[in-house]
């Protein structure tokens, strides 16, 4: 009950503080804001599906980032064999990953749902290992790239010159967030999924097909990663361990936002992205940028625990 009260207060103070901070940063380090928003959106885009699985299916998927790698290699393969633009290939990659997710769920994940908690952790650890190594065996550890000239395009406003491509991360993150929220709040299936996330036993009693919901949510999550895969391919090098750092980042964002809070992930992503970019822009101290990420995360979680949000 205490939770709803604090939430009410947060709704005003936090965004207000954030906006003031943002304006201040923008005045002194405008590029840090631009770069931070771009990278932060990407973190959020990749973290949202992880949080979705964590919140509703209750699985911490250690192979999450490796699905990103897999998706990127599929897009790369499509590009090399058909010449299809990586952005367009999203329409093939995302459904393909959805199917991969469904298959994996059926074969493995569904078997461990009743097993002791944490077994899923070991399972996804094994899956991550298999994915990384199979990719390494097929494509070797040598990085691959796709070059399209729009990925390094830039625009100038006044004296500012900044890259435009990475704003697609922001668009995608907001788009996915809106669609997911619409789905969870306004469709029958989505409402059922939401109910399962809140109380799986209760949901079962009311006649919701919990198994089916789990399958759907897990597959959708993996599918969304496919969108990120297509978006990042023109901009980044891909290699067998390309996606795995994103698992940790996603996990951090999900925890920082609090379970079940998808909108919070976008805010957290932006905050951490800007924080990182800010430190990177300070001469001689760029090596400390990771500490912002971890520091902010620890601060937010502990402060909230003292407020009694989730002890």
């Amino acid at each position: 009950m205490a939770e709803t009260k604090t939430h009410g207060r947060h709704q005003f103070t936090l965004p207000l503080l954030a906006i003031v901070a943002l304006i201040l940063i923008f005045i002194f380090k405008p590029y840090a804001v631009i770069y931070g928003v771009q990278r932060g959106s990407l973190y959020a885009l990749i973290a949202m599906p992880l949080a979705l699985t964590l919140g509703i299916v209750g699985i911490l998927n250690l192979a999450h980032g490796d699905f990103l790698t897999l998706g990127a290699y599929i897009a790369y393969w499509i590009f090399n064999s058909t010449g299809l633009d990586p952005l367009l290939s999203i329409f093939a990659v995302a459904p393909l990953l959805f199917v991969v997710g469904a298959g994996l769920y059926k074969i493995t994940v569904s078997k461990v749902l009743r097993a002791p908690l944490l077994n899923q952790l070991l399972l996804t650890f094994g899956i991550a290992m298999i994915l990384e190594e199979v990719i390494n065996l097929i494509w070797t550890s040598r990085p691959r790239n796709v070059y399209v000239n729009y990925a390094s395009a830039s625009a100038s406003i006044g004296g500012f010159r900044f890259g435009t491509y990475e704003f697609s991360y922001l668009l995608a993150a907001v788009g996915v967030l809106v669609l997911l929220r619409l789905f969870l709040k306004h469709t029958r299936l989505g409402k059922a999924a939401f109910a399962v996330g809140q109380n799986p036993k209760g949901a079962k009693i009311v006649g919701i097909n919990v198994e089916m919901i789990y399958l759907l949510i897990f597959s959708i999550s993996v599918g969304i990663v496919g969108i990120a895969a297509g978006l990042t391919l023109p901009r980044m090098s891909i290699f067998p361990l390309f996606g795995s750092p994103f698992t940790l980042k996603s996990f951090c964002l999900a925890a920082m936002a609090g379970l079940g809070n998808l909108t919070g992930i976008l805010w957290s992503g932006l905050a951490l992205g800007i924080g990182e970019a800010l430190v990177q822009s300070i001469e001689g101290y760029s090596g400390w940028s990771d500490i912002v990420f971890f520091g902010v995360l620890i601060a937010v979680i502990t402060i909230r625990s003292y407020r009694g949000s989730y002890v």
């Binding site: 090596g287 400390w288 500490i291 990420f293 971890f294 502990t302 989730y310 002890v311």
Partner: peptide, 28 residues
């Protein structure tokens, strides 16, 4: 004292983040 009040994934992620902090400090 600071983090043992946390539970479940919040404790897990905080310990992980602390390890990250140690690494950055050692590196810098």
């Amino acid at each position: 004292y600071a983090i043992l009040r946390l539970r479940e994934i919040y404790f897990a992620i905080t310990t992980l983040a602390l390890a990250g902090v140690f690494t950055v400090v050692a590196r810098n």
